[in-house]
């Protein structure tokens, strides 16, 4: 589904990703772990198409297409979803209205009929019920005045509603208490399917107790330095990232 090869990305002239390669197949959950400053958030932003991230080398293929040449909205319509680490507030724009416009824009792009207000509301209620979210979120402006936890719930809710094929969760666990964390994990687990893939970016192993990944990769200094199964995350937890740095150095110098 997603094939990243030798990806080099600079931000404001400064290289951040330095040859990252990663293959994600449908139905898989990949966890990307790594210390602060390793380039974890850059990966999510590049996949979603944010301005200011300059790809200097490498390729990103998504469903057989060059993802990098698509505008952000086209990527969304093609099924790429980024759950933001810091979702932005958009004052005055009603959350429901926003989601309906987004969903219908995506449907239109895919040649599917747009949902009318009734159909949309029905869908919303269904998703809310599954995620145990109160509909109070819907009446407020997008993320405006939301607590950190509410913002993350809102991201997961959006993901549930938009039903992406590839979901990238950028440190969705940061700043969450255990209940919110469980809710986020439930939302993801509920959506796991043979057609859908997840890339879960996190600093801590904690989230992976609830979202059990098929693969764990360690990102350090702009590239993946170690891959393994869920046990790698536990090892990291035990030894810390410093342990990794020692292992990575000879390779980096090679």
């Amino acid at each position: 589904m997603l094939k990243i090869e030798n990806l080099h990305v600079s931000v404001a002239g400064k290289p951040i990703l330095k040859g990252l390669s990663l293959t994600v197949n449908a139905g898989e959950v990949h966890a990307i772990m790594g210390p602060n400053g390793a380039g974890k958030s850059t990966l999510g932003n590049v996949l979603a198409g944010r301005d200011g991230y300059e790809v200097t080398d490498g390729t990103v293929e998504y469903l057989g297409r060059n993802l990098l040449e698509l505008e952000p909205e086209a990527r969304a319509a093609e099924g790429v979803f980024l759950a933001f680490q810091y979702p932005v507030e958009i004052p005055g724009v009603n959350n429901t209205y926003f989601l309906k416009a987004a969903l219908n824009a995506q449907r239109k792009h895919r040649g599917e009929p747009e949902l009318d207000a009734m159909q949309f509301l029905k869908l919303v209620r269904e998703k809310l019920r599954v995620l145990h979210i109160s509909d109070e979120l819907l009446h407020r402006a997008v993320n405006e005045g939301f607590s950190g936890g509410e913002k993350k719930r809102n991201e997961i809710f959006q993901m549930a509603l938009l039903e992406p094929r590839l979901a990238v969760l950028d440190e969705t666990d940061s700043g969450l208490d255990i209940d919110a964390l469980k809710m986020v994990a439930e939302g993801v687990n509920h959506m796991r399917s043979a057609e859908r893939a997840f890339v879960v970016v996190t600093h801590y192993q904690r989230l992976l107790d609830y979202i059990v990944p098929d693969y764990v990769h360690v990102l350090a200094d702009g590239r993946i330095v170690e891959s393994g199964d869920k046990n790698l995350a536990l090892k990291l937890e035990e030894h810390g990232y410093a342990w990794l740095r020692d292992r990575q150095l000879p390779q980096a110098r090679a």
Binding site: A48, G49, R50, D51, E71, P72, E73, R75, A76, A77, F81, L82, F84, P87, V88, I90, P91, G92, V93, F98, L99, A101, A102, L103, A105, Q106, H109, A141, V142, Q158, L162
Partner: peptide
């Protein structure tokens, strides 16, 4: 970017943000 990453075109995103600004 947030609006676009959810699938809205740039002009629609601008109108939506401006509309919110004027709410």
């Amino acid at each position: 970017f947030y609006c676009r990453s959810r699938g809205l075109g740039e002009e629609d995103a601008v109108s939506m943000i401006v509309d919110g600004f004027c709410k």
